[in-house]
Design a protein around this nucleic acid. Sequence first.
DNA 1: CACTAATATTTCATACATGAAATATCAAGC
DNA 2: GCTTGATATTTCATGTATGAAATATTAGTG
Lengths: 147, 147
Amino acid sequence: MDSELALKTWFRMLSNTALIEHELRTLFVSEFKVTLPQFDLMAALHYAGGSEKMSALSKWMKVSNGNITGVVDRLERDGLVERQPLPEDRRVKIISLTEAGAEVFERMARRHKEWISGLLAEISEENLEQLHLQLVQVSKTIKRNIQ
Amino acid sequence: MDSELALKTWFRMLSNTALIEHELRTLFVSEFKVTLPQFDLMAALHYAGGSEKMSALSKWMKVSNGNITGVVDRLERDGLVERQPLPEDRRVKIISLTEAGAEVFERMARRHKEWISGLLAEISEENLEQLHLQLVQVSKTIKRNIQ
DNA sequence: CACTAATATTTCATACATGAAATATCAAGC
DNA sequence: GCTTGATATTTCATGTATGAAATATTAGTG
């Protein structure tokens, strides 16, 4: 196995990801004053049907509990999400999108999709399909080699 | 152009990168007590021939000046790099790997390559070659669409 | 030579990110 | 009912990250 090729491929994957992330962060902040982690958390809430426990967010987003606390703090301060108690278990906090948060999220999700497809626009459907399949394979391989 | 496919491909690229980065971070910290950004900075110094100006590091690593200051502070504290003045321009600081830093870097670079090729081990040479080529194309496309 | 521009680095306020410790609550078994 | 252990969240110390302001120095211009 050619470990130089593996390394080159990894560096390219890393730099592509960094480029796109940097661009997305800039766009989100300038158009919505929302950071990427904040958008990710709102997306997690959206796909969970609107509300979720702190611990479930932490697991889903694969970040630490402490991290979620901070991101939710700032989103709450900005009126995009709210914390509610769960009567039957007073340890739990339920986080949900506020009305304003849900409205902003819809607009952000639409723009996000436009931005991504804009960045990858000139890649042919066929190539993109093939790339996606390969990335799925890579994902399986990595997961096998990590556990 | 299928923007759902573009989005799926992006998510897969992002999650693969996050998985590998997480694994590398864990391995670097447990085996060398060095963080990923610290390794990256040492790698930049190594490939620059051993020493470099702060501003050149910032440009090369595509991070802000303030960030470089902090990473260098901690590497200096741990004895892996040192700051030296440049007599002919007293604004400049030259950062270089110490003897200890260079020695540790050699070991880290070797392990890094082993880890990456280990993670991607079961991917055939042919598939890896193809993936690399596609990622290079993606890189060109993105850069065209960002400027 | 004095003034202004530009360049190099650090400092600051803010926001992530981690893992470990602290706090609060619940659940199970005696 | 009380202890013990598990679960949920927050707090803390540390290390990235950004962009803007502050500082120091150099270079260019009248």
